[in-house]
């Protein structure tokens, strides 16, 4: 449902994404792995419209979205869970959740409709502390808030940028469970990760990225068996 074709993105003169092509099928979780600076965040930002690609095509549900302003891309049904979570510090937990644009798109049959109640049901801890400031939460809870906030736009596809970053191993396990549960509701997920095992646990398909290009792709089991790729590109 989300498709990138020969995408090139630049920061000024630095050529970061160098002809990226891949797609995220409906209802699947695709993991994008790679070392620091490989261009994973730039990929996510290119899709979300924050750093629009200079050339190439990005389409969503067969409609071109590259070149649209970020808010329109979000309203097409693409939710962003950014690297570093980026919780709004001057907002309470509840406010962080009500700020996103309410969507007016029709949901397809069988797809879950996300609203405040549904998010609170998924993450009861957010409901308990809804009047606290967002930044008073622990790292793992802030990650839940960032996910909940993205869900409030009622997306059909969600972009997650290193959700396990800076979290304790037990919490990372929980994040893995959350991703699986989201997938079960029918969401398509593009999961950027440095945590190899989390990604292999949650994903249906894995892409390995280096220097702005996809250098390997396959199933999690294939990657787990391929030590060469793991060493060369992921430093496992």
């Amino acid at each position: 449902m989300l498709k990138l074709e020969d995408v090139h993105t630049y920061y000024g003169y630095s050529h970061i994404l160098q002809g990226l092509s891949f797609s995220v099928p409906k209802g699947k979780c695709v993991a994008l792995l790679g070392r620091n600076g490989a261009g994973k965040t730039t990929t996510i930002h290119s899709i979300a419209g924050l750093t629009p690609p200079r050339t190439g095509r990005i389409s969503y549900l067969d409609k071109p979205i590259s070149g649209l302003p970020p808010y329109k891309i979000a309203r097409h049904g693409i939710g962003l869970v950014p690297q570093g979570r980026r919780i709004f510090p001057s907002l309470t937990i509840r406010e962080n959740l009500i700020v996103p644009a309410k969507d007016s798109r029709q949901t397809e049959a069988g797809q879950k409709k996300w609203d405040l109640e549904a998010v609170f049901e998924l993450f009861p801890v957010l409901k308990e502390r809804e009047q606290n400031m967002g930044t008073q939460l622990s790292g793992g809870q802030q990650q839940m808030l960032a996910i909940g906030r993205a869900l409030m736009t009622n997306p059909q596809c969600i972009l997650m940028d290193e959700p396990s970053e800076g979290l304790a191993p037990v919490i990372i396990e929980q994040v893995g469970e959350i991703i699986t549960r989201l997938k079960d509701t029918g969401l398509s997920i593009l999961l950027v990760e440095q945590n190899f095992y989390l990604a292999c646990g949650a994903a249906d398909h894995v892409l390995v990225m280096s220097k702005g290009q996809i250098v390997w792709q396959g199933s999690p089991t294939e990657l787990l068996a391929n030590e060469e790729i793991q060493h060369q590109y992921l430093g496992v």
């Binding site: 979000a74 962003l80 980026r86 709004f88 001057s90 009500i98 969507d103």
Partner: peptide, 24 residues
Amino acid sequence: TRIGAIIRAGVDDRQMLSALGINI
């Protein structure tokens, strides 16, 4: 109000706000 929350969010992080579907 929600409008007020949107404005405070914009002071915090404009880019993030636009990625949440708000026409900045």
